[in-house]
Design a binder for these strands. Structure first.
Length: 287
DNA sequence: CACGGCCCCTGTTAGC
DNA sequence: TGCTAACAGGGGCCGT
């Protein structure tokens, strides 16, 4: 489950149900789920046996469980359809169960990575000096990170020769924003997705960033956005923010500001939802 | 080297 | 009813 609020919901679940527990064993049921672990599934399982997890961390859509008294972490990315579920040991295996982690304590629950489309996965990585798995060192801080650098975000936008929605989805510029929250923030900021970033004034980029933060914080407050059972917390429960969406998925429905029917446009093998009146297309810029 | 396009997967749904 | 195409919230990698 993809974007920052949904991943944060999962992180909080892991903090409550998995942190500080001793691992008995790990079982890899699909090789693609550990493809980022280059040493392979057997190595993944062997190295996890006997470790204890520390408190989970998150940056953007990545989350990781540091291993106590060791310099490495279990890194997780949910991709499009990944779930981290805490289930009782007796619960039947899910159809798309990819990885199982059993614990050595007596709580009777296990951690499962379930992923229909296998775009997500788990892997083990050495931590950098900052305690970050090395392979995500290129991922920018996310907008809810207190150390997010607003000034360098703005200067990067001005320097780039790209469009604003592409920039929002560029995880090396700002992380955690995906297709839903990009459309929501752009609608709130009255910006068209094809607006060149170089034309954004400092107040406008600050306003946009503020909307990104507000929509994500609001979504987090109600457990994230779920359209179906694919996007759930560690207990398999869905969030409620889909009821509060103003742009995403609202093709032909009236804009909540001006009443104009919302539009959907194919965009980068996905879709962009916008109000044609509130979010005017930019004038073609001379080359 | 920055950027845009393509690809990796499986399942559901809309349309013919 | 059955087939097919489009679409789904991800990111990495490749070529230009």
């Amino acid at each position: 489950m993809p974007e920052l609020p949904e991943v944060e919901v999962v992180r909080r679940g892991l903090a409550r149900w998995v942190a500080h527990r001793p691992v008995a064993s790990a079982e890899v049921l699909h090789p693609r789920a550990v493809r980022r672990h280059l040493a392979g599934g057997e190595d993944f399982a062997r190295r996890l046996g006997g470790v204890t997890f520390a408190t989970p961390h998150r940056r953007g859509k990545y989350l990781w469980l540091p291993v106590e008294d060791a310099g490495f972490s279990v890194l997780a990315h949910l991709g499009m359809s990944g779930q981290l579920l805490v289930k009782t040991e007796a619960a039947p295996d899910e159809k798309h169960l990819r990885i199982r982690i059993r614990f050595a304590d007596a709580l009777g629950t296990e951690l499962r990575f379930v992923d229909q489309r296998t775009f997500g996965g788990l892997s083990l990585h050495e931590n950098t000096a900052e305690g970050l798995p090395e392979v995500i060192a290129h991922i920018a801080r996310d907008p809810l990170d207190p150390d997010f650098d607003e000034e360098s975000f703005h200067t990067a936008l001005r320097r780039r020769r790209t469009t604003v929605k592409r920039a929002l989805l560029d995880q090396s510029l700002i992380s955690g924003v995906g297709n839903i929250y990009a459309d929501e923030a752009l609608w709130r900021a009255r910006l068209h997705y094809d607006r060149p970033t170089a034309t954004l004034t400092r107040p406008k980029s600050a306003e946009l960033l503020g909307h990104v933060r507000e929509v994500m914080t609001a979504a987090l407050g109600v457990g994230g956005t779920s359209f179906d059972s694919l996007y759930v917390n560690v207990n398999g429960e869905s969030g409620y923010f889909d009821r509060s969406l103003d742009a995403y998925g609202r093709e032909d429905e009236p804009c909540r500001r001006c009443g104009t029917p919302m539009r959907r446009r194919p965009w980068m093998n996905r879709s962009s939802y916008f109000c044609p009146r509130c979010q005017r297309a930019p004038r073609a810029v001379p080359a």
